[in-house]
Every structure is written in C-alpha cells, then in structure tokens.
Design a binder for these strands. Structure first.
Length: 757
DNA sequence: GGGGGTAAGTTG
DNA sequence: AACTTACCCCCT
C-alpha cells in the first residue's frame, strides 16, 4: 500500500489551511507541485483557488475522508519560500488564521476567473450519468466535459461524495478581437483607385494584427472605407486572438533633485535613516540600491501610501529600473508584474503593503516612513507592515532599511547602523490657546494678513472635516449624538447635515433642539475645515481660500500655479504635491493629534509637523502651532531641532514604562449588541487569563472601550503587556474563547486610547 | 404556512 | 468569507 501525502492548502478566507488529497490523475501524469504554487480545490458547491503551503504525510489507509484537489494552476511557485514563511510568521504573530493573512497580503492571483468543468465517470448508476450528460448511460466511457454550472443543483456534491466525478479547472485565456490579414493582394486590388486598399493590406501584413479598422486606417493613412473593403473582399478578417500581456506602467523619473548627497551610507543588516526630507532619505539609498542591482538582486521598497509610492518611484527611476505596485495597479498588470519578478533582470519594486510578498530575487528590503500609522492594517490580521518587512528580511537574510524623519523607538532599540541627515531648524511659533483666540488666534490672523499683503500662500491644518465637532443646544446643552455610536454627530453646515464620521449615519440638521425644542442650536467645540475656511475668508478677504478634505477636494490648480491663497485642509493635504509659494504653515489645534492617548501619539505628532513642512520644500515657511499645551516636550524638540535627542528620550521612556519593544502588547476586544453580553464576556475572559497565569502587572482591564458603543455594538477591552516570548502563552485562553460576544485580538495595537498614565 | 430577519454552525 | 440551517417574529 502506498503512503501518500495530503496537500495543505490555504484559501484566502479567515480559516487555517485544509488538507486535500492530490488529484487522482497525479500518480501517472502531472508532477507534484511545489509549495507556493496555486492549486484549485473543491470548496462548497464549486471550486476555489488556494495556495499550496505544504504536505502532510498520511498513514496508509488514512485520509479517506479528505476530498481530492482538482488541479495545480502553476508549475513554478507563485510565492517564494520566504513569502510563505512570512505568511506563517505573521499568522502566528497576530493570532490570525493564516488564510486571513493570505487574503490581506496577496493582492493577485487567487481571484482569477476559472472555467470549472466536470464529467461523470463510467459508473454504477445509469440514472445519474444520463441525468448529467443528457443521453443514455454508457457503462464504459465517461460523459463529455461540460460546465459544472450545467449540473442540477446539489448533483455535483452528490457525485463528488460518491467518487463518480472527474473535475478540471483552468484559467481561460483572455482573447481580444483583432483584424488579421488572410492572403496577399490579387488582381482586384490593381489600379489607382484601389491604392489605399493595397497600402492598408501591406501595412496589416507588416503589423500582423490591428486593433480595429479605424486603427489600421490611421496607421496606413488611408480611409476607413478602404479597410472595410479589404474585409469585404476577404483579404482580412476579425478574429479572436490571445490578448497580449498587460503592459507595465512606465514610471516617469522626477526632475533632477537639488538634494546634496554628502553623507556616506553605513552598511549593516539593519540601517536606520532619519532626518532630512522624504526625498533626501530616498536619494541617499541610491548607492546601496545600485550595488544590489549590480549583484543581480532586486530591492523591495515599501511606502505607506499611494502618493509616497509614486514619489519614491519617480525619484529612483531617474537612475534605476523601477516598477510600482499599489492599490491603483490594475489586476492584469499586477499579474504581469508578478511574473516579471522572477525574470532575470533585477529591478526596484516600489509598492504599498500589497507588494510585500512579491516573488523578487531580493537583495534588500526598504521601509519608507516606518512610523506611519497607515502601515497598520485596520482590518483582518492587523499586522504592522514594518514588522512583516522585518520577518521578510530575516527569511531571505538580506539587509533591512527603515527610514523616517524620526526613527521609531522600536528600530533604535535594535541598535541599527545609523544615517542621520541634517534637518534645518524650523522657523516655528507656538501659540498658547489658553490665552483665548480660538479657532484663529490673534497671532495667526496677523501672519495671515502678512501672507495676504505679500501675495503668498498659507496651508492651515484643521483637526477634522465639516463645520464643527458637534451641534449643541445653547439652552439645555444637549449634544446631538449618533444613534449607532456613542459619539456626537459632526455638523456639516454647507450641506445642513449631521454626520457620524465613524459609521456614516447622516441626517438633516434640525432647526430646533430635539431635547428641549429650543431654536438655539449652534456649532460647538473644535472647528473643522468648513468653519476655519469661513473664518479665514472673513479675516483675509482678498485671499483665495481653498478647502481640501474627503468632503471637498477643491481644484488647486491656481495655488499650484503660484497664485496667492490659503489651503484649509485635513491631513489629506500631506498627500498633495508641494505648493510653490507657501510662507506659512498653520496647525489650528495640535492637541487632537496628541491627546488620542496613544503612547506613540507624540512621535506621530512630531512626524506630522515635519511632514507638513514638505508642502513647502526648501522654503522654510513659518510654522505656527496653536495648542493648549505649549510646554510639551515634542514641541520643544520640534522648535529646537532636537529630533535625535527626542528619539532617544522616547526610547528611554518606552524602557522605563515597559512598553514596546521592551514588552509585547496585545489588545483583546469583546463586543456585542448588548452591553451586558460584552462586559460579561470581558470579565469572564479576564478571569480565565488570570487563571492561566497572567499577573496584575500583565493584565489591564477589562474596561469599556473609549467609545463604548460603535456601529450599534458595545465593546469592552483588555490589555496584555508582557515579555514577547510569553505573550502567546498568556493569550491562549482568548484563542479558545467561544461565547456570545465577538472577540478580536490586536497585537501591537496603535490605538490604545487613554492607557498610559 | 411562509416571508423576512438574525444567529449559529460549517466549510476539507 | 460565503454559505446553510435553525429559529423567531409577524402576518396572512
């Protein structure tokens, strides 16, 4: 009896890998695919594409309950061994099912359209066969291949279970309709009047195919009628031909940069690049990347957002072969790019997190803007991409580069080689809002008037979109809240609307207070872009005021052309190309960016201030920051240009408070429609965690989530903070929780609201 | 008895 | 995640 192995197959679903028997044709025909290949497996009443991640030996006679895989889609692995190990490590690290990690991180190849065909094998039950094939049963030959969808409902499952079904699946070749030549010109193309037809036919023969009659007419410089005549006379015809591979987008190199590359770059398995500008940090990597490519190795460069992907790609494209992969890359191009990775010519792949598993022959991994919270996946496995990049670099044993204006304490703790680029001290002015003057302080109004008088530009950062944080009754102080969330509805005056920025609920702003019927409803608390734009228009009426946020992305071409004006925006403006004439950057309320209660909030606010300056590169604009807490260390570090000292201080503080990377942190959230259900589950789980060994030092909570109810669900949360190597053990009871509440685990959470004392 | 909704269980 | 089954409410 032969001992065979089952295929361990991962599907892009929140599930662990499943075992399948190899397809029954395999023993004689197709070779066993390697791990990393895509395979087609039966799934529910159809088939799905999954990833072969390994094999599981089966004892003789075992595995009879397993189903057979249908086929392998690849002959060469679609993912590298390193990528497979990253999947595995991320799954273990985030406590997420591996299939979820696959769904989050593999942006191509598993959703391909499949043709699924079946035929009924020579069988014992004539009725079944005839019902399927639509002809009398033949005991010796299988029925012909037909689309699985043609089977009556439920029949496929039945036949599968009886082992009477042959299945195959393949990716249909994409075709396009093209004009092709059929034969050489003959007598009926002679003569002057038919010169155009002759020319068109000759041209078509040299081209091979043409997209359309119009395209050929244009190319051969003849009338469309001439081409149509060729088709009519049988010299050419339209035919379905294999579609050409999607062309790869060419990255336009950016114009020569003024950045001076003065510092030499240290080498090491881990390199931290800090200070300078975004462009300077990228350009300083050129010598390293050049060397990698010369050695025949490709480089993966990750950026947290689409615009930074484009920016970095353009900077590098001036000297190196570069491709990009991000959310905007079309499916066809992603697939083509994936194939390209394995080809001989090394290149630099600049991409968002979607590029993480690209099957490059890697020589180095670079993470730009390593501290960006955009790297934290907000759903699914919630991995922080720089962490996954660290796993990748370790798996292929290549150097890792982490760059940001302020190095992350996590990076510094790992004692990297360092490249700290000079950052000119900013011209900064801090305004203490405790003295009044909000939303626009007297100082801000004064400098805005200077901007107006000198015909310059200003950028004002607002803490949110809309008019105000809430609509409030002046008589009874009632704040109109969201029916689904414990949050005030944001007031949008322009649209006379109240909106929840969390769940999307929206209604018309009422005229009277819903609580007391008073007509005294008014905007309250922090101003949004709408309010600030209105104030700015009032105090500097001659300036062109533009708004830029999710609600209103105004056309900025006048500002881009250098015309005087003010841009009032949310942090969405950080993704804009720089404006040419900015002399003032104003932060109308820094506090909302710090007081989120996260232990990383200060460093993120520091990065925000430095990133704002990138809207006016090389100009050293005045940065005016309005705040209720002007004495904060981050503002001192910022105004005095002490980034390095600040980074060291942050690291020291992490050590003192036993925070990451000196301890591992996990948030366990329990939510339910009923508050009591969520609370009960959280209390029970806290008990279970303590019983399993969690000490009072390690376990914090349970407590209600900072926003107790969201989207109609109440949440309670627990935090575990413990030595990294002990976290998995401490979390064990949470992993086996089966109860009425929904449980979510977030490893290394970045929104731990109000936690650090 | 069944439409319409939600909750719970299963998928190999 | 996608899908099936179980269950409840309400209505004819």
């Amino acid at each position: 009896m032969t001992v065979q192995s089952a295929w361990r197959v991962l599907l892009p679903l929140p599930l662990p890998p499943f075992n399948f028997l190899p397809p029954h044709g395999t023993s004689g025909g197709a070779p066993t695919p390697e791990p990393g290949c895509r395979v087609v497996v039966p799934w529910q009443s159809g088939v799905r594409v999954g990833l072969l991640v390994g094999f599981e030996p089966l004892r003789a006679g075992a595995g009879l309950e397993l189903r057979e895989a249908v086929s392998a889609l690849d002959t060469r692995p679609f993912l590298t061994q390193a990528a497979l190990s990253v999947l595995e490590r991320v799954a273990a690290y985030t406590c997420a099912p591996a299939g979820m990690v696959l769904a989050n991180l593999l942006p191509v190849g598993l959703g391909v359209p499949l043709v699924h065909q079946v035929r009924v094998l020579a069988d014992i039950d004539g009725e079944v066969s005839s019902a399927v094939a639509g002809r009398p049963a033949d005991a010796s030959t299988p029925s012909t291949w037909q689309d699985a969808a043609a089977l009556p409902l439920g029949r496929l499952e039945l036949l599968r279970r009886q082992g009477l079904l042959d299945e195959r699946a393949f990716v249909p070749q994409e075709t396009v309709r093209r004009l092709v030549p059929l034969r050489e010109g003959e007598g009926d193309l002679d003569g002057a009047p038919r010169a155009g037809q002759r020319r068109a036919l000759a041209h078509l023969w040299t081209l091979g195919t043409s997209q359309s009659a119009a395209a050929l007419a244009r190319a051969a410089d003849v009338s469309e009628g001439a081409v149509r005549a060729l088709v009519k006379k049988g010299y050419a015809e339209y035919r379905e031909v294999a579609a050409p591979p999607a062309p790869l987008t060419v990255v336009a190199p950016s114009a020569a940069s003024s950045v001076l590359l003065t510092l030499s770059v240290p080498e090491g398995p881990l390199l931290s690049v800090s200070g300078g500008t975004r462009a300077a940090r990228v350009l300083h990597l050129l010598p390293l990347l050049r060397k990698d490519l010369a050695a025949g190795k490709s480089v993966l460069v990750l950026a947290p957002e689409q615009t930074y992907v484009q920016e970095a790609a353009s900077l590098l494209a001036a000297e190196l072969p570069v491709h990009t992969l991000s959310g905007t890359t079309a499916d066809g191009e992603r697939l083509r790019l994936w194939e390209r990775c394995a080809e001989a010519e090394p290149f630099v792949l600049v991409g968002s997190y979607l590029a993480l598993l690209a099957p490059l022959k890697l020589g180095r991994v670079v993470v730009l803007e390593e501290g960006s919270s955009a790297y934290k996946l907000s759903a699914g496995c919630r991995i922080f991409i720089p962490t996954a990049a660290r796993f990748l670099a370790a798996a292929v044993d290549v150097p890792l580069v982490l760059a940001d204006t302020l190095a992350a304490p996590e990076t510094l703790a790992a004692t990297p080689a360092r490249l700290n680029l000079p950052t000119p001290a900013p011209r900064a002015h801090i305004v203490d809002l405790k003295a009044g003057g909000w939303p626009l302080s007297a100082d801000l109004v004064r400098v805005l008037r200077q901007v107006e008088a000198r015909g310059r530009q200003a950028v004002l950062l607002a803490p949110r979109r809309g008019f105000s944080a809430a609509l409030c009754c002046t008589d009874c102080e009632h704040v109109i809240g969201c029916p689904n969330c414990d949050l005030p509805l944001r007031y949008h005056r322009e649209r006379r609307a109240l909106r929840c920025h969390q769940c999307g609920f929206q209604k018309r702003a009422p005229d009277l207070c819903p609580a007391c019927g008073s007509p005294g409803l008014g905007p309250r608390r922090a101003a949004g872009t709408e309010w600030i734009a209105a104030e700015v228009a009032r105090v500097v009426p001659k300036l062109n005021v533009k708004r830029y946020d999710t609600d209103k992305r105004e056309d900025l071409s006048e500002l881009r052309a250098g015309e005087p004006g003010v841009l009032v925006a949310t942090t969405a403006c950080l993704r804009l190309p720089p404006l040419p004439n900015v002399s003032l950057v104003g932060v109308t309320l820094l506090d909302v960016f710090i007081s989120l209660g996260d232990f990383r909030a200060e460093e993120e606010a520091y990065r925000l201030l430095l990133n704002l300056a990138e809207l006016a590169p090389g100009r050293r604009p005045l940065t005016l920051v309005q705040t209720f807490a002007p004495e904060s260390p981050l503002l001192r570090a910022y105004t005095e240009g002490l980034g390095e000292a600040f980074a060291a201080e942050l690291l020291e503080r992490r050590a003192r408070f036993n925070y990451p990377p000196f301890a591992a942190l996990a948030k366990v959230q329990l939510s339910a429609r009923e508050a009591a259900t969520a609370k009960g589950a959280a209390v029970w789980l806290a008990g279970a965690l303590r019983t399993a060994g969690a000490t009072d030092d390690e376990l914090l909570g349970p407590s209600a989530a900072p926003v107790a109810r969201m989207r109609g669900r109440y949440s309670y949360q627990l935090f575990l903070r413990t030595a990294s190597e002990r976290l998995a053990e401490r979390l064990t009871p949470a992993l086996s929780y089966r109860g009425a509440a929904r449980l979510r685990i977030d490893i290394d959470p970045r929104d731990i609201a109000g936690f650090l004392e």
